[in-house]
């Protein structure tokens, strides 16, 4: 399955990344190289094979829905590029 320039732009958009116009062709080539290479998986017969999601055989366990380490607002905000009044702040989204 080869991809085209439009698909490259779409994937970049979904990834929240910007690709300069003069780099789109290079990215497209690289993507097609990678996709051609992974294409070899189609040789493998996987009829009736269950996908392996986790190598852990044990099921996830349940726990009580309780606060473990609360009241840490200052620590949570410590690394924020911008914070005010105990909140993370972002560019205005509502006019």
């Amino acid at each position: 399955m080869a991809i085209d320039k439009e698909t490259v732009k779409k994937i970049a958009f979904l990834s929240h990344l910007k690709i300069d116009d003069d780099k789109i062709e290079e990215t497209e080539d690289e993507f097609n190289k990678i996709l051609n290479w992974v294409e070899q998986l189609s040789e493998v017969n996987t009829d009736g094979v269950e996908p392996l999601v986790s190598v852990n055989d044990t099921n996830l366990t349940l726990r009580q829905d309780v606060v473990t380490e609360g009241n840490q607002a200052d620590a949570v905000l410590k690394n924020a590029p911008q914070a005010q009044y105990g909140y993370f702040t972002v560019p205005k989204v509502v006019e």
Binding site: H16, L17, V76, N79, P81, F88, V90, P91
Partner: peptide
Amino acid sequence: GVRYGLRINGKSLDDMYINTRT
């Protein structure tokens, strides 16, 4: 770019995300 690390500002929230990640 919201909770930690680098933030590169942009005109909108989406721009800020994209600029930061790029």
